[in-house]
Design a protein around this nucleic acid. Structure first.
Lengths: 223, 223
DNA sequence: TGATGTTCTAATGTTGACATTGAGACATCG
DNA sequence: CGATGTCTCAATGTCAACATTAGAACATCA
């Protein structure tokens, strides 16, 4: 159905622990600034501290948590500078990803982008579940990075992806009208230009897409 | 002398193990494709397997080694695609780093760039130790990323820095004339434009600087 | 009283032992 | 003889006990 047996890679407990903790952070169970104690998590997840430790190291690579020598691990908090840094870097990465994908994307991959835009539109027209809308937004960009086919670029994207997810969800708590009003159109335009746009126009749009998101987010933040 | 006690952070054994293994890889002790066995390293470094394991995970973040479920860790190979990926991403990162540093760099940081260029020139005129020349090249770009002051951007740079180091050293074994002929001038021009260039010219030069390196490296590689 | 030194403790850092697995050697069958 | 199944073992994955440390509570002294 979904895909022709790409692989069914058995992963370790560390990966699963990382997935669980990441989900808990994104769901709000661990708010920004919360301390993540290894013993506590190990007991709750029913794995050893070593595995939890390895999983937390993974989340640190993703920038979702911060840790220090003998000082434990805590969820990052969302300062204006953090937002500035992540969105600035993301603009540069997206610029490269979109211009690359413009050359390398297969028809199937482009169709998948259209499908995701359609899903967004349906979500807006329907229940408008903000969490799902944000997930679709990120999935859209995941697909672009996949289509670009540059492993290192995808790794760099993964290193800010979770932070981005956290930022967008955080904003969801405080009014999301502007986002909802533009998210479908902006992504539809991106998908269209990936098919038929010239490189420079696409590069500019990709940067503006991110810049608009950054300004919109910062406007509601300076707390 | 050096700096006014910024900090003397005690690090863990894992970090030291990572440093040692990284140095061993870059020195050629572990050639591309070599297997890094945890027990072996643990015995040789006189630390536990756990610490070695954590250190190897760190090197994996840097892209210097690859690992899989129950399949051990090996030094990455240097294929044409690897070079293509790393240099393409680096061009995008450097573009952002230089244009940002143009706004944020302090006079002291700019002076340090000049100093590094002078060191390169001295090295060329003198013994022309290739390893040291490559180290200066990378230190130059380290300084630019530091001056840009974007933590996430610096993290993304670190994720390809060691690979880049490995690539450049690998090429050093097979003729380095073109590199030696241009490295000083190119970096001097970059330093100059960081002081007085306009944004667009600087962005273009930063990309060309990397693109030139990539082509030069790929030319001598397809083995 | 405020600054400095000390003690205590909860949490992380580190380790060696045990469990599991992947890949090749070997045997078996068509 | 080639393909397939089984076995073996070295290497990794996991775990629980022990060692170390950062920070806070407390005591001490000018």
């Amino acid at each position: 159905m979904s895909s022709a047996l790409p692989k069914a890679p058995r992963r370790g407990l560390a990966d699963e622990a990382a997935d669980l903790v990441r989900a808990a952070i994104l769901s709000g169970h661990f708010p920004p600034g919360a301390a993540l104690r290894e013993v506590e998590l190990a007991a709750h997840l029913d794995v050893s501290r070593g595995s939890v430790r390895e999983g937390l190291a993974q989340l640190e690579r993703e920038g979702l948590v911060r840790g220090g020598w003998h000082r434990g691990t805590t969820v990052i908090d969302v300062t204006a500078q953090d937002v500035e840094e992540v969105y600035t870097l993301r603009a540069a990465l997206d610029r490269l990803a979109t211009t690359t994908a413009r050359r390398t994307a297969t028809p199937e991959q482009l169709s998948r982008l259209d499908q995701l835009v359609a899903d967004m539109a349906a979500e807006i027209a329907g229940t408008a579940d903000t969490r799902r809308l944000v997930a679709l937004d990120i999935a859209f960009h995941d697909q672009i990075y996949t289509a670009a086919g540059n492993g290192r670029l995808t790794t760099a994207w993964r290193a800010i992806r979770s932070q981005l997810h956290l930022f967008q969800l955080r904003r969801a708590d405080a009014g999301y009208d502007h986002y909802r009003a533009r998210v479908v159109d902006e992504h539809r335009e991106l998908a269209a230009l990936l098919r038929s746009g010239d490189r420079r126009t696409l590069a500019r749009l990709a940067e503006e897409h991110v810049d608009s998101a950054r300004r919109s987010l910062l406007a509601g933040l300076p707390d």
